[in-house]
């Protein structure tokens, strides 16, 4: 990525993120450019070494001639909306690399939701030549977990010593990961975390880690409720599907020393192949567009309501609810009725 493109990309990202200037044109051009960029989401609890892993992956790919963009998302203060974004400090291998571009982003202050914003930025990055995009996000809070749905492939990172297998399950991360990485794989306890995770995954997914065909062993799955099984096969495919079903593998990696990072990238390309063959890949892309569309619609409808009514009107409704004149649901009904949905006028 030469300096000029780097500069253009930086400024385009700002305009798209802030919805300022010619952001619509930028997005349109970037979408039109199309891309085969593979978007990888990296999520997990604080302290799991996500940034170091992202750094190692980015450097690895850059070394193989790919152009890599990193979007590092950090939580923001719920009070002020401000944020200190420090993930890139740990990306020492990538920061001077001409094939890598790193951008930080705060998790708050995106009308239309974090996902929509992240997707837009990925589009811009791909439109400027990125062939691999890594999104790093803290796996706490629904907002951040959902970033998994933005990516083509979601890596869930844990680390020995934080009681992570339990944490991961609690955070719902066991339903989103395509590949599980136990980072700091050289620490004692890494093997047992990996074993625990593998066991838990084996109870849910058919066959062995990786893609598995119709003959995959499904005896462990009888205890899974039908509805959950349906959701899982929508995301991970069924053994009968072309390409088979995906059973997320678990890898112990030391991002710091780069140990097994090569193995991880091999798994990523295996997953990429599966995703292209499986109908689950199409479903995921569909789901992604739907999420984005719904998020944008919600926001735009709300914005329009607010613009029409001015902020003062909303304050009036709040006062009326507080005074006990009516409950919030009735207030919502009346706002939509009185003013009518924007398209009806």
């Amino acid at each position: 990525m030469d300096l000029l493109v780097r500069r253009q990309l930086a400024s385009a990202l700002t305009r798209v993120e802030n919805r300022s200037g010619n952001w619509r044109d930028i997005l349109r051009d970037c979408s039109r450019a199309g891309s085969n960029a593979l978007v990888i989401g990296v999520t997990g609890p604080p302290g799991a070494g996500k940034s170091t892993l992202v750094d190692a992956l980015a450097a690895h790919w850059a070394g193989m001639g790919e152009t890599v963009a990193v979007l590092a998302i950090d939580p923001a203060s719920p009070f002020s909306g401000g944020a200190v974004l420090g993930d890139r400090v740990r990306m020492t291998r990538s920061e001077g690399n001409d094939r890598i571009f790193i951008r930080s982003m705060s998790a708050r202050g995106h009308s239309g939701g974090l996902n929509a914003a992240a997707l837009d930025l990925c589009t811009v990055m791909a439109g400027h030549g990125a062939s691999r995009i890594l999104i790093e996000t803290v796996g706490v809070g629904q907002n951040e977990v959902e970033v998994a749905f933005v990516a083509d492939c979601t890596l869930v990172v844990s680390v020995p010593g934080l009681g992570d297998s339990v944490q991961a399950a609690k955070a719902g991360l066991l339903e989103v990961g395509d590949i599980y990485v136990v980072n700091k794989g050289d620490l004692p306890g890494a093997a047992s975390v990996a074993r625990d995770l593998s066991t838990m995954l084996a109870l849910v997914f058919p066959g062995l880690p990786g893609a598995s065909g119709p003959q995959a062993d499904r005896s462990m799955m009888v205890s899974i409720p039908g509805a959950t099984r349906k959701l899982l096969s929508a995301r991970y495919g069924a053994p009968e599907d072309p390409g088979g079903a995906w059973h997320p593998p678990v890898l112990a990696v030391s991002a710091l020393s780069g140990q097994s990072v090569g193995e991880l990238t091999e798994w990523l390309s295996t997953f990429g192949t599966w995703l292209r063959q499986s109908p689950a890949g199409k479903r995921r892309r569909r789901e992604r567009v739907k999420l984005q569309l719904v998020a944008l619609l919600k926001q735009r409808l709300f914005d329009r309501l607010q613009q029409d009514d001015h902020a003062g009107a909303l304050t009036d409704w709040i006062d009326r609810v507080l005074s006990g004149a009516l409950d919030v649901h009735s207030a919502t009904d009346q706002i939509l009725q009185d003013k009518g949905p924007p398209h009806a006028r």
């Binding site: 780097r6 500069r7 930086a10 923001a76 203060s77 009070f79 002020s80 909306g81 401000g82 944020a83 200190v84 974004l85 420090g86 890139r88 400090v89 920061e95 001077g96 571009f101 790193i102 951008r103 930080s104 705060s106």
Partner: peptide, 26 residues
């Protein structure tokens, strides 16, 4: 942060070139 700003912290021991690049990318 508490004043509502987004701050990119570079960490210690940066060269002028590194700082310029971070400032540009961000």
């Amino acid at each position: 942060l508490e004043a509502g700003m987004e701050v990119i912290y570079t960490g210690i021991r940066r060269t002028p070139e590194q700082i310029a690049r971070i400032a540009m990318e961000e």
